[in-house]
Amino acid sequence: MTNKSIKPPSAARSSGWISPHSFLSVAVTLSVFFMLVHLVGFREHTAFLSGTTGAVGVGTRLSTFYGVIYILLYLGCVVIAPILVLAAGMLAFWQKFLSPDKHLP
């Protein structure tokens, strides 16, 4: 039985996700999706925040849905992505200079 096989499943999942590369991948993905919804004009639909619809010819529910998607991806790009980039840098620094694992082959 190897060390790998005795990892608890949750820890295995966590260790796979917690890496500078993963953090950067999520940050880039969020940013790309945000750029896409921005380019297709979902920004106008954030008008639901003021109780109005964003565009003529789009129903209130659909407009609100587009607006919510835009806001979530905006927050992902402006708030979450930079945190992930910063965390990736810190984690990379830790792995390179501070982690006990850095001595492992």
């Binding site: 708030v79 945190i83 984690l91 982690s99 694992d101």
Partner: peptide, 26 residues
């Protein structure tokens, strides 16, 4: 012990990054 260390380090990095970014965002 490798995974818990990595998990703690990752969580700490995320928490610290969140504090830094959110306080600078404005």
């Amino acid at each position: 012990m490798r995974c818990p260390n990595k998990f703690v380090a990752g969580s700490a990095a995320l928490a610290l990054a969140a504090v830094i970014w959110i306080s600078c965002l404005h």
